[in-house]
Nucleic acid binder design. Structure first.
Lengths: 345, 345
DNA sequence: CTAAACTCCGAAAGCGCTTTCGGAAAACGC
DNA sequence: GCGTTTTCCGAAAGCGCTTTCGGAGTTTAG
């Protein structure tokens, strides 16, 4: 058990002694209580900065009964699971937390599949005041659990049943509808979808949006034009291959993520189709390297850092006493037009 | 200030009372002290699990004087800065930490450029027992600072001066030499390098390795074949463009990262060159989507999760009292052969 | 059967900070 | 000039756990 480091930190009692007041007084001075004379507050603060005083977060947390920490569980790293946004998300969260000097505790699920267990353990470890959950499923055991646990939380995305908790989601349905409309406006009439399992709520919503977009463009929905794939380039590749094999193949396909779109483009190219003319594909995510695929990928984008910030702000408000149900926000995604789409040839 | 959550945790005093012993005894029983009768230890542990007791980490930390937390500062998110590995790194760290039930505190640099300040603040916040630093520069102010601060740390990569601290690095020099050798074996004699600033130590080492590889293959080093670029696809694109414009353009180019390689391939293709035959390119990073570029990218790879684990183990050993200088490890990268390379045409 | 050696646990003092309570001193009111 | 507020601070009791110390009770040695 590592003992205190050589550089013994200066404690509140030392600055109290230096100024000639009690610890309690010094504490209140530092924390902006109104029952402290301005003159003594000044002296205390001077001494504090002179001695380079840093309050012990541990002691404060114990005394206050709040750990001032919010938790984030890294998405399990499975085949289906490469989430390109965690870094940005963490950045956003961390940025928002910095304003209050709160901490971000990151953990991972140890045994694959034991995700819920991880949340459970984290919840009653007492190490976090609240949680941010991402990669939401349509029916997500994590939010079920958290709702019943009493631990404050906010989710990125939303479940099928949106009631009773705080969330912030992109309007996936609208985004998919927009993508279809964009393609229809270009003149496409045979537009397909490579989606993921409706198990993921964002996928479910994008499927809905796809159908709505079709309807709004006066296009017919065809079951063979909607194929489900794992959330990976491999998945996209296989799905596109099956789409191309159709007797009257689609002239455009919207993909549930950029990674899937990459795979889809590869498949098309392997079949000798030129993406952007013979066949259009649009992705979803706005990954930076999408600008460097061949051809550059047209895609939907969202500001993940800002999303992380906002999620954190929401969580903090809830921790301050706000009702979680007050926070149910939907943001819009934005189309980045590059070169993987064009009028049908 | 958020008060304790409804679910008041059960405290040590409660389980002590239940068993009929003192808090101190209960504590020692739970922590495996030898001066506790096996029978009472059993009773205490039974009571603890019956009441679902979770020791308060905050209280323990205060009493023990150790925060049981290690810190990680997210790489600044600048143009040059997309580090595709943070997620995996965090996973590895977190996994290793779980064994001891320690925590991972993640933070970000608030104002761009104020990176050192962030480390400074983190160091004397008392919130972490140690730090893991990544993205090491040849002359890295962070390790300078940490060396003098007394805060234990371990670095991924290494600085130009490798003495006096713990690090774990990939053998970048060897990897680059291997890449050159691979290309030379294929028959290339005009192999170029797109590197990053030697400011990054891994880049500097890869440059060295490139030259060594050239020498070992009996090839001449030419200054115009070595071009420096920002660590992005854009950077690779521009660099490749200049390489192609050379009177006797190279037939192969090794790129400092996969992202750079992607840009480089694009540039070549825009000039009408077929990558893999007209010109070979090899990347470095082993990013998953490299398998789906066109053509699939030949690259060097390393296991970042395992790296994160090992870094953490090292740090924990240091925190247990081991001497940092004992830990200076070099691992090898592995070539993944795909389709962006081939014999010169 | 007594002295020495163990076993095992209670008591108590922290760890470094927060917060409530009460009261002395100073300011105010008329 | 005396009672009433106000202002400001000290005292003290925590927060929930750890760890040292010492001493009862019990076992062993001789």
């Amino acid at each position: 058990m590592q003992k205190l480091s050589p550089r013994r930190a200066v404690s509140l009692s030392q600055i109290a002694e230096a100024v000639g007041v009690t610890e309690g007084t010094a504490s209140r001075a530092l924390n902006g209580y109104s029952d402290i004379a301005e003159s003594t507050r000044q002296k205390v603060m001077d001494a504090a900065s002179a001695l380079n005083y840093r309050p012990s977060p541990t002691a404060r947390r114990l005394a206050r009964g709040s750990v001032e920490t919010i938790g984030y569980v890294l998405p399990a790293h499975g085949p289906d699971q490469t989430d390109p946004f965690v870094t940005e998300m963490l950045n956003g969260i961390s940025l928002a937390l910095a304003d209050r000097d709160w901490d971000l505790l990151v953990t991972t699920v140890e045994k694959s599949g034991a995700e819920l267990e991880t949340y459970q353990r984290l919840a009653d470890s007492g190490k976090v005041s609240g949680l941010i959950v991402t990669r939401t499923l349509s029916r997500d055991p994590r939010v079920e659990f958290l709702k019943s646990s009493g631990l404050p939380f906010v989710v990125h995305g939303r479940t099928a049943d949106v009631k009773g908790y705080a969330w912030l989601d992109i309007d996936n349905e609208q985004a998919a509808a927009d993508a279809v409309k964009h393609l229809a406006d270009l003149g496409h009439t045979r537009v397909a979808l490579i989606c993921a399992s409706p198990y993921y709520n964002f996928s479910r919503l994008r499927i809905d949006g796809y159908r709505r977009g079709l309807a709004e463009a006066g296009l017919q929905f065809r079951t063979d034009y909607s194929v489900e794939a794992p959330l990976s380039a491999e998945g996209g590749l296989a799905a596109m291959r099956s789409l191309i094999a159709l007797p009257d193949r689609p002239t455009a396909v919207v993909c549930v993520t950029d990674l899937v779109a990459i795979g889809a483009m590869r498949a098309a190219q392997k079949e000798g189709l030129r993406v952007g003319s013979d066949i259009s594909v649009v992705g979803y995510d706005g990954l930076p390297f999408g600008a460097f695929t061949d051809p550059p990928l047209t895609t939907m984008t969202q500001d993940v850092i800002r999303t992380g910030r906002r999620l954190t702000e929401i969580l903090l408000e809830i921790l301050d006493g706000a009702s979680p149900t007050r926070f149910q926000e939907i943001w819009n995604a934005r189309l980045i037009r590059r070169a993987s789409d064009g009028p049908p040839s």
